[in-house]
């Protein structure tokens, strides 16, 4: 019994990632390193620019959204990027209202999410891999009620219905997709299963994709898997704010990807705060980098170096010329 208690305790502790803090050296800036590709890449880019250009030390604090965001509120982390505002709206609003954090920038406005993502070969087939089109007529979410669609996406645990794979537990998509399935009238035809974690979601999609099997579920962009696989979004009614607030009966709006800082960060490093205010990265840029990262099996830091060397026109917009020169010189030797 003691053993299981200890094991459970350890599991819970490791889930709630302990954020370490160290006092003393004011010159160290602590950046979040959230556990998905586009965030890790941008944190790596920021780390190189701040260290080489502005001369501060940077410590990356890895972790999940909620624990790190709490760390930002408490001041254990100075800058938090890239946050998905709508996915943590309550926590974000509460932190802004309490004056614990300030928003520095929105990174882009062309990101997407959908609960009805399918591999393109489901509709079009893939002659190179010998996959025949399974559902050539599938276009809109309404078509999903078709018995053939339901049978194609059959839930192995309950074959009378189809299966839609939802995102990680506790993400906003959990609530939204469950409601969308009801609103679109799909609840009688489909079960919705939680993927548990983003890793499991990717593994599920990648496993089905490599085997050429049908798959339908939640995904978002920018992510490496959207860059690496040929995917299609089943059409939903276009986003409309009133409909969305009523019953989520339309496609997702693009999310505000934000960079936020602890309230005291301005006093600590105003120049770096100014840089983050200029920060902008399109989904296309991030997809490109993430696909590069996946192809080369490289670390975020390698992708950051590649980006700083090859996509100068983007990042030199964030920083004054003298800083850009310093970064350019340093990166040339990396």
């Amino acid at each position: 019994m003691r053993k299981i208690c200890l094991v459970l305790l350890a599991v819970m502790l490791s889930l709630s990632i302990v954020v370490t803090s160290c006092d003393g050296e004011k010159e160290t800036i602590k950046l979040s390193e959230l556990n998905w590709g586009s965030a890790q890449f941008q944190s790596a880019v920021a780390k190189i620019i701040i260290e080489e250009g502005y001369g501060y030390d940077v410590e990356l604090v890895p972790g999940e959204t909620i624990p790190l965001f709490q760390g930002l509120r408490d001041g254990d982390i100075d800058v938090f990027l890239e946050g998905w505002m709508e996915n943590q709206q309550e926590a974000y609003d509460a932190a802004i209202a309490a004056g614990d954090i300030v928003n520095l920038s929105f990174i882009n406005d062309d990101n997407w999410q959908s609960g009805f993502v399918i591999p393109t070969y489901v509709i079009e087939g893939d002659t190179a891999r010998g996959i025949d089109p399974m559902l050539p007529d599938l276009e809109t979410v309404d078509d999903l009620k078709d018995p053939e669609c339901v049978a194609t996406f059959a839930d192995p645990e309950d074959p009378s219905k189809g299966l839609i794979v939802n995102g990680p537990v506790g993400w906003e998509c959990e609530i939204v997709l469950n409601e969308q399935v009801v609103t679109y009238g799909l609840a009688d035809y489909y079960n919705v299963m939680n993927a548990g974690s983003s890793t499991a979601l990717f593994a599920s999609l990648k496993g089905a994709y490599d085997a050429g099997e049908p798959w339908i579920g939640y995904l978002w962009g920018p992510t490496w898997i959207a860059g690496a696989l040929d995917l299609t979004l089943v059409e939903e009614p276009p986003y409309d704010e009133d409909v969305w607030n009523e019953d989520h009966g339309c496609g997702w709006p693009s999310v505000h990807l934000f960079i936020a800082a602890h309230k005291d960060f301005e006093d600590k490093a105003a120049d770096v705060a100014d840089m983050f205010r200029e920060w902008e990265m399109s989904t296309a840029t991030l997809d490109e980098v993430l696909a590069y990262m996946q192809d080369t099996e490289g670390e975020p830091i390698d992708a950051a170096i590649w980006f700083l060397k090859n996509r100068e026109s983007i990042w030199t917009e964030f920083v004054p010329d003298d800083i850009a020169d310093k970064v350019r010189d340093a990166v040339a030797d990396m």
């Binding site: 299981i4 094991v7 819970m12 709490q70 926590a91 990680p168 548990g196 974690s197 593994a203």
Partner: peptide, 30 residues
């Protein structure tokens, strides 16, 4: 049995329903 119960929370990360998923959901929402 004890080992199996200890795995319950971890297994929720690959979508296994049950108590583990509730623990994970609780943690992810603070």
């Amino acid at each position: 049995i004890m080992m199996a119960l200890a795995m319950v929370v971890l297994c929720s990360m690959i979508g296994a329903a049950g108590l583990g998923l509730e623990v994970l959901r609780g943690m992810n929402n603070l």
